[in-house]
């Protein structure tokens, strides 16, 4: 069963009682929240996520709690609580519960998933070939990721390039993509049928609206992808499209520096990055036009030799 099979009121009923359990990529997340409008938002944005009713191992137990103080009524707030530790997030205004949920679960993943090498990277797949897009915030990787997803690529992740330390493959984690500021309209214009959630203004990252990953991406989130391209993207207003090759040695250093937990996974992390680079062509990308990027990269991927 998926969230789209349930009504908002059923979701709300679960949220305020035993909690909903949803699966996002390799993680099962239990969420409790006594917030009626959140149920409506989840009904739309979580529509494709599996809604789990049987017994499973839970990775993160999240509670979006409301403080028992005057801030329950007066300019109400919401707190992010988890059984797995304290992310130290300051309270958010109650109507920002969804951005808090998304950022909070990012913390859960980043702080506790050292079974994976976690790259700060978007990841997509086209014709069975995985593409990593490692970049720092503000480079446009979320926007690119949403754009690819809307042109029939498989979206793997917009933020966490999870590399399975045993298989060396990319583990999908199709979280909602938080589009920021101008990116929201860029994606609306690029793909009018994209499902984008309500606009949250004045968050710590400016205006944010969440893009819902397509059903095909979510449905295949158990299938790991083989990395074939590593592309360091950078939005640049004056450059339409520029793709330059990066030497493998340089790409290795850049990728290692970009990981959340490179030092924690140690030697295994080094080997993962090394074999990833060995098997991939590495480029640097400057762009200002999504249609061109999609078209050119599709050509590039089609020209790659198939897996032997």
């Amino acid at each position: 069963m998926r969230f789209s099979d349930l009504s908002s009121s059923t979701i709300y009923h679960y949220l305020k009682t035993q909690g909903v359990v949803y699966q996002c990529g390799p993680f099962n997340i239990q969420l409790k929240a006594n917030i009626p409008f959140l149920a409506e938002q989840l009904h739309v944005l979580f529509a494709h996520y599996p809604f789990i009713e049987h017994d499973v191992l839970i990775d993160f137990r999240v509670n979006l709690a409301r403080p028992y103080s005057h801030r329950y009524w007066w300019r109400p707030q919401v707190l992010f609580k988890t059984a797995e530790g304290d992310p130290g997030m300051a309270p958010f205004p109650l109507d920002h519960a969804l951005p808090m949920l998304e950022w909070g679960t990012n913390w859960c993943v980043a702080s506790q998933s050292h079974y994976y090498l976690m790259l700060h990277s978007a990841a997509v797949e086209y014709q069975g070939k995985g593409v990593l897009l490692p970049a720092w915030p503000g480079s446009g990787k979320s926007t690119l990721c949403a754009a690819f997803a809307m042109r029939g690529w498989r979206m793997l992740s917009d933020e966490f390039g999870l590399i399975d330390l045993e298989t060396g493959l990319i583990q999908p984690i199709p979280k909602l993509i938080p589009l920021k500021n101008q990116s929201i309209d860029v994606i609306r214009n690029f793909a009018p049928d994209a499902v984008i959630g309500p606009l949250f203004t004045k968050t710590r990252k400016g205006d944010v609206a969440h893009f819902r990953p397509p059903l095909t991406s979510v449905a295949q989130s158990e299938v790991q992808a083989k990395p074939r391209l590593v592309i360091f993207p950078k939005y640049q207003s004056e450059t339409r499209f520029k793709l330059t090759e990066v030497t493998k040695a340089q790409a290795l250093l850049r990728l290692a520096n970009n990981a959340f937990n490179y030092q924690i996974v140690g030697k295994k992390g080094f080997h993962a990055v090394k074999s990833l680079i060995d098997e991939s062509n590495c480029y640097e990308l400057y762009f200002n036009d999504l249609d061109t990027v999609v078209e050119k990269l599709q050509q590039l991927i089609e020209s790659l030799p198939p897996e032997e």
Binding site: N28, L57, D59, Q112, H114, Y115, I264, G266
Partner: peptide, 21 residues
Amino acid sequence: LPEKARRTILGTMHFSGYLSQ
């Protein structure tokens, strides 16, 4: 152990290995 449990446990072992190092 079930794959999921094994992964969770290995993750915490990696982390403790790092702290110890």
